[in-house]
Amino acid sequence: MKPAPFDYARAESLDEAVRLLSGADGDARPLAGGQSLGPMLNLRIARPALLVDLSPIAELREVSEDEDGVTIGASVVHSAVEDGEVPDVTGGLMRRAASGIAYRAVRNRGTVAGSLAHADPAGDWAPVTMALGASLGVTGPEGRRTVAADAFITDPLTTVLEPGEIVEAIRVPRLSGTARWGHYKLCVKPGDFAESLAVVVRDPDRDRCRVALAGPTHAPILLDGVAGLVAEASGWSDALADEIKDAAGGGIAAAGFADADDRYAMNVHATVTVRAAREALSR
């Protein structure tokens, strides 16, 4: 389990990173914490010609907070979120999500942006950022652009990033004081990739309610039908749970998120959605 050979370059600036990544015949990959790429290199699933190490770029480590939210540089690691070094504008959701990602040793190296860009369909950050209505700042040979988190991952291990583009920062909007959230991750052992992961954010003051779902076989999705039910709910009841479960099932089937004949998978995703909603509505 040793990687195939590759070249390596340390990028000292964003411009240099973009320039390096645009070369190598499209066979270059950015390296941040390497916690997702490292295993794929060792398994020889990933065989890039060139790795461009982003870690020397100081601006990617920056975090800035304003009254509308927080901007998290691409090199910020999970444990910085977990420990509250990154201002938490989400009433604890970001910290909860961070603390459930893999293990502390991985969280100390792995980055929020790197995890998103790796686009494992069961990754932890995609449903969180989608439910929060976050966006990603992207820079590349054609300049800068902003991509909504819910439009970022298109398929498992695939994003909208063009060759040479990298995520520069993640912008997370601030939840209002009355906002409530739910986060339910089902996995075999703590730290595993999720078998199913649902995130519910209900922010009536901002007239926002979003429900996102992630799992191992399909890109994460938003469940608008469930979000509608959660937005209108005034409390928790068994009847509401049933309604949400049905709505989740409908959304999951419509998106082709799980094999509709796989009753176990369908049920697990719907159940996890219900549990996240219950947390949001019971807080």
């Binding site: 089902l186 176990y264 049920n267 697990v268 159940t271 996890v272």
Partner: peptide, 8 residues
Amino acid sequence: AVDPDTGQ
């Protein structure tokens, strides 16, 4: 304890 909804 067996969770009938998740099988865990």
